[in-house]
């Protein structure tokens, strides 16, 4: 797949200070750099190397991704929601491009 398309699943509403589960999935080939093409030349590494999740501008979760992670990486984590706001998800590619998406949550 040429373009990387993120999918995220965040509950639309939560109660104050509730711990919610967030699921994310992005399409990416995660080329490890260890493989060779049919002519024996190494295929250059191209992976998503970093993922961050911000809530109202503050980072609540981030991680580095390594070459051994499989294609189309799936990440699941929890976050505590003190107030209504917006989650922003960012994936950073080796080639410098960033893929991001946002998701709103309302605290009732």
């Amino acid at each position: 797949m040429a373009s990387s398309k993120p999918r995220v699943k965040v509950p639309k509403t939560a109660s104050k200070d509730e711990v919610i589960t967030i699921k994310t999935l992005i399409s990416h080939k995660m080329e490890s750099g260890q493989r060779k093409d049919s002519d024996g030349n190494p295929i250059p590494r191209q992976i998503i190397n970093k993922f961050t999740c911000d809530f109202n501008g503050k980072t609540v979760f981030s991680c580095d991704l390594e070459p051994a992670i499989s294609a189309n990486p799936y990440l699941e984590f929890s976050a505590k929601v003190p107030e209504s706001g917006t989650f922003k998800f960012t994936w950073v590619d080796d080639d410098g491009s960033e893929y991001s998406t946002e998701s709103k949550i309302a605290v009732e």
């Binding site: 797949m1 398309k5 999918r7 699943k9 699921k23 999935l25 399409s27 189309n72 799936y74």
Partner: peptide, 12 residues
């Protein structure tokens, strides 16, 4: 359906 990576292609 969310965790099923096949859905990336279904969406395409």
């Amino acid at each position: 359906d969310f965790t099923n990576p096949g859905f990336l292609m279904v969406e395409n």
